[in-house]
Amino acid sequence: MSDAASKAIDRAMGALVGGALGDALGMPTQLLSPARIAELYGHVDDFVAPVADHPVSKGLLAGTITDDTEQALLLGRILVESGDRFDHARWVNALLDWEREVKARGSYDLLGPSTKRAIDAINNGVPAEKAGRGGDTNGAAMRIAPVGIMMPVAPLDALVAKVAETCRATHNTSIAIASAAAVAAAVSRGVAGGGWRAASDSAVAAARRGATLGHWVTGGDIAARIVWAQDIVRGKAAKDAIRLITDLVGTGVASQESVPAAFAVLEVAGGDPWQAAVISANLGGDTDTIGAIAAGMAGACTGFSRLPQQHIARLVGIDMSEVRSLAADLVAARVAKKSSGKDAAA
């Protein structure tokens, strides 16, 4: 294996495992207010268990990943199995199988609203190409990292088109595609060796293109909100930044809140994946998804080897050998696309 391929796999692993760290750290604080988080835990800077009456995370062990990570790994496997043309039917069937599994585990409440609504519609006979027409929340962005690993950032149109294809069944709207495209482009720039500031620049360009795809829905422009969210927290202390993100940007499941919030977190953390996870966990709202996105992007820009290994060892619900194999397969596909010059969105 070449040195370049090894570095790319390390960055790909950084994206996937960084996302898992942010997901697991935010798992017990999701849906809670910043005041309630402080009351229960003080300042969250390590894995903690959710309270017994938590609305969605009750019963999970400290360090447990949620649907954010599970869906990202699932999407990654479908991308590898699909080859050059994304297998939409395989993806829908995989989502339906996964839904049955999480229901059996008693974790259905962890599903985001757009994904849950689309899966229910497909189960009721709605064609998959129509099921995602109303999906405008952050479920596509939370799981999109494998597309960023597999797709080179240039040509950008090919990357964004691949993002849109994976969004069709659950998040086929302009705002969700723009959000997912931003995250995928940031990850792709990181896997290519770029730093987090360069990744943010690529994200803004991708969001602008993604906003032209899918079914148009109303909402703040994702590209503009990413730039604005990073601007308002730049140079601020973490405590002050958390308040600005919570009060102004928003931390709900809406794409126009949580995705710009994740980029603001990336700014405050200075591209440090663990700090991105910690900041996200204390925001309140959709902490696990914001953490998964922010720490995943940061991890792509730093690499797995620079992640806190002592925390990785305590993750629950993730098979690191499978993650490493997936990262290698996605990077191999990326290298093949660059070598052949194929438009992988075809």
Results as ranks from 00 to 15, higher is better:
residue 13 M to I: 05
residue 42 G to M: 03
residue 228 W to G: 01
residue 220 G to P: 06
residue 341 G to V: 10
residue 302 T to Q: 15
residue 244 L to A: 13
residue 73 L to G: 03
residue 251 T to F: 12
residue 159 L to I: 11
residue 181 A to L: 01
residue 92 V to W: 00
residue 207 A to C: 07
residue 227 V to K: 07
residue 297 M to S: 04
residue 263 F to Y: 13
residue 110 L to T: 10
residue 231 D to G: 08
residue 146 P to E: 07
residue 15 A to N: 07
residue 83 G to C: 11
residue 160 V to M: 05
residue 39 E to I: 03
residue 214 G to A: 09
residue 78 I to S: 08
residue 161 A to K: 14
residue 334 R to V: 06
residue 265 V to Y: 04
residue 175 I to E: 12
residue 128 A to T: 06
residue 113 P to I: 12
residue 126 V to E: 09
residue 197 R to K: 13
residue 179 S to G: 15
residue 121 A to I: 03
residue 54 H to W: 11
residue 275 Q to L: 12
residue 342 K to F: 14
residue 118 A to E: 02
residue 305 S to L: 07
residue 171 H to I: 10
residue 342 K to T: 14
residue 344 A to K: 04
residue 316 V to E: 14
residue 26 G to F: 12
residue 283 L to Q: 04
residue 206 A to W: 03
residue 182 A to Q: 08
residue 314 R to V: 05
residue 266 L to N: 00
residue 77 R to P: 04
residue 337 K to E: 12
residue 275 Q to S: 13
residue 19 G to K: 10
residue 245 I to T: 01
residue 205 A to N: 08
residue 256 Q to C: 10
residue 176 A to R: 01
residue 135 G to P: 01
residue 153 V to M: 05
residue 202 S to Q: 07
residue 3 D to A: 12
residue 106 G to R: 10
residue 260 P to E: 02
residue 313 A to W: 04
residue 309 Q to E: 10
residue 131 A to T: 07
residue 94 A to S: 14
residue 249 V to F: 03
residue 35 A to W: 05
residue 321 S to E: 15
residue 72 A to R: 06
residue 339 S to E: 15
residue 12 A to N: 06
residue 12 A to W: 00
residue 220 G to Y: 05
residue 48 V to C: 09
residue 222 I to P: 04
residue 174 S to G: 15
residue 311 H to K: 13
residue 90 R to Q: 14
residue 11 R to A: 06
residue 14 G to Q: 02
residue 302 T to I: 14
residue 145 A to W: 01
residue 210 G to W: 01
residue 190 G to R: 07
residue 207 A to Y: 02
residue 329 D to W: 00
residue 285 G to P: 08
residue 280 S to C: 04
residue 78 I to R: 14
residue 69 T to F: 00
residue 116 K to F: 06
residue 331 V to N: 02
residue 294 A to I: 09
residue 175 I to R: 10
residue 200 S to G: 13
residue 238 A to Q: 09
residue 162 K to H: 13
residue 223 A to N: 04
residue 298 A to R: 01
residue 342 K to L: 15
residue 75 L to M: 04
residue 295 A to W: 01
residue 326 L to H: 01
residue 212 T to G: 02
residue 310 Q to G: 05
residue 211 A to Y: 03
residue 240 D to M: 08
residue 67 D to N: 11
residue 239 K to M: 05
residue 142 M to C: 04
